[in-house]
């Protein structure tokens, strides 16, 4: 059962990820990206990481993507992406893409993918995750939150400077 759900979700994730690249309307790209996030959240659920799954939806699909959508709608970018790049640029892009492919193939060739421990691991549960975050990883966690705070203050400052 879990296997079929896994393959279904993977198919959905890959399909939507490809559609993000292929579709030439910015808003459609964004919506496919959200669909991709949803599929990945489903994967998290399969790994018994409930908290991560929901936070992934709330933060990425629910907050960040809304802001992206907001910007795209206000700018109303609806122009078709045309291939008007020069031949040189195309060759460079092709070669670098090929190099990336080769690198990935070499890396993945020697990699043994460990079978995920489904439904047995409990670290994804909210309580366990909270306990680990606030005891073992207390300092990095607080440091990250201060980083976020300073970014937020910086954003407010930048807005106010233009007034």
């Amino acid at each position: 059962m879990e296997k079929y759900i896994f393959f279904g979700l993977s198919g959905l994730a890959i399909f939507s990820a490809i559609m993000v690249l292929v579709s030439n309307k910015p808003i459609h790209n964004l919506l496919y990206l959200i669909l991709c996030f949803m599929a990945i959240a489903g994967h998290y659920l399969l790994l018994n990481a409930q908290f991560l799954a929901v936070v992934h939806i709330i933060v990425y699909a629910g907050a960040i993507m809304v802001l992206f959508l907001f910007t795209l709608m206000m700018l109303n970018l609806n122009l078709k992406l045309e291939l008007n790049k020069s031949l040189m640029a195309r060759i460079v892009a092709f070669v670098s893409g090929l190099l990336l492919l080769v690198t990935l193939v070499i890396i993945l060739n020697g990699l043994v993918i460990p079978t995920p421990k489904t439904a047995t691991t409990q670290i994804g549960m909210t309580r366990d995750l909270g306990q680990v975050l606030f005891s073992e990883y207390m300092v990095p966690f607080e440091a990250a939150s201060i980083l976020f705070l300073s970014a937020m203050v910086g954003a407010v400052m930048m807005v106010n400077k233009n007034k």
Partner: peptide, 16 residues
């Protein structure tokens, strides 16, 4: 064990 967060996730989807 994540009922409330689920409600939040769904509510945040309501914008779309």
């Amino acid at each position: 064990s994540i009922d409330i967060l689920y409600i939040f996730a769904i509510t945040s989807m309501g914008v779309y």
